[in-house]
Amino acid sequence: MTRGTALEIIQNERLQNLNWFDDHNIKPNEVGISERANKWKVYTSDERANPISEKEFQTEGEALENFIKRLRAFNKSLL
């Protein structure tokens, strides 16, 4: 998956509660993705804005796939 594809999915499915490559400080109850030294991390934050269930990936594509999967699940739970 590419960043462009991920952004299309986010827009088309109106996914919310996300932190796209550290575009803001971590907020409570969101799914985030970040990059550091050619490694990508996907996490979910708890009600106190602490990152939990972090997973590190070697490729951006794998990280984006996991990010979208978590984001879809998280948004579904909000319905």
Score class of each variant (00 low, 15 high):
M1L: 10
R3V: 08
G4S: 10
T5H: 07
A6D: 10
L7Y: 01
E8P: 00
E8L: 07
I9N: 02
R14P: 00
Q16W: 01
N17M: 06
L18I: 07
L18N: 06
N19L: 06
W20Q: 03
F21A: 03
D22W: 01
D22N: 09
D23M: 02
D23W: 07
H24N: 04
I26A: 09
I26W: 01
K27C: 06
P28K: 13
P28S: 12
N29S: 12
V31A: 02
G32T: 08
G32L: 11
I33N: 04
A37W: 05
A37G: 01
N38L: 13
N38C: 07
N38M: 13
K39G: 00
V42E: 13
Y43V: 04
Y43N: 02
Y43L: 05
T44D: 10
P51F: 03
S53L: 13
S53P: 00
E54A: 07
E54G: 01
E56L: 11
E56C: 01
F57W: 08
T59E: 15
E62N: 14
E62R: 09
E62Y: 06
A63M: 11
A63H: 10
L64C: 08
E65H: 03
F67K: 09
F67P: 04
R70H: 07
L71K: 05
R72C: 04
F74V: 03
F74Q: 14
N75L: 11
K76F: 07
S77H: 09
L78F: 00
L79W: 01
